[in-house]
Amino acid sequence: MLSFIVSRAARAAITILLVVAFAFVVMRLSGDPALLILSVDAPPEAIEAFRKAWGLDRPIWEQFLTFATRALAGDFGRSMRDGRPALALVLERVPATLAITLPALALKLALGIPAGIFAALNRNSWADRAAMMASVAGFTMPSFVLALLLVLVFAVQLGWLPASGSDTPLHAVLPILTLGTAGAAIMARFTRSAMLEVLGQPYIRAASAKGLGWWLVVLRHALPNAAIPTVTIIGFMVGSLVAGAVIVESVFAWPGIGRLLVSSVANRDLAVVQSLLMVIAGWMVLANLAVDLAYGWLDPRVRTITSRAD
């Protein structure tokens, strides 16, 4: 188990390092931020001074080393726009994003898991087909279309809920509904296929054959085993708590991480984008690591199989 944990943690660390490198290289190769922040006709001395101040005049590997060592110390630089520490700027947006993504996650699980179990237990019934059609419709509908449809119905036509902004708790309802509905569709699908997989196993037949009631078979033997693959998708959803609302936040003018990303990418605010990438990646990697460990804990087979295959 220890070597399993160590190998997973090492891979997580490598992934983080790659994200740092990716963020850095893409952004430095793509253009000269000095010319973007200052106008093109700024005096050359001013541009020179700007470059010196941000270390843009040094070779790129040196810039990267500086960046990486500072990043390890928790210093991601300052926003080029308003001069505040970039990491602080990013972190202060996290609560707003979580305020809509956490309730949305609860909605996904509360709707998706029962629907998936129900569909699997009634496989090929009309209810199963209807649930799966609804589920496909739910996750093939782009979040911005769903968001705009909800705005059209609840804000424009009925006038019950505000269309955008973040002043009252009511403003959070439509974003949460948008995120939750699509996620519940995915959750239902995964739960259904995990359940079907388990229900086809010999040990379920054995449990039925020895005379256990069907509900006991489902509760004691099917559900716990079906929970294992479902952990993956829940982990993925937890991983996207921070960055999973880019479009929804933009539609509803919600002041979270996603909107900050879009605006700082548009402004080419390098320090903020780098901090964002790091925070998002760090969170995703932690969530993935947690899933891997949970998997190893739930399913002893994984520990030995993965340490051999990978």
Partner: peptide, 17 residues
């Protein structure tokens, strides 16, 4: 790396930059 980052985020940074 590819699986660890939401592709939307990667695409967004590459495109805008």
């Amino acid at each position: 790396f590819q699986a660890g980052m939401p592709f939307m985020i990667i695409a967004l940074s590459v495109l805008a930059f």
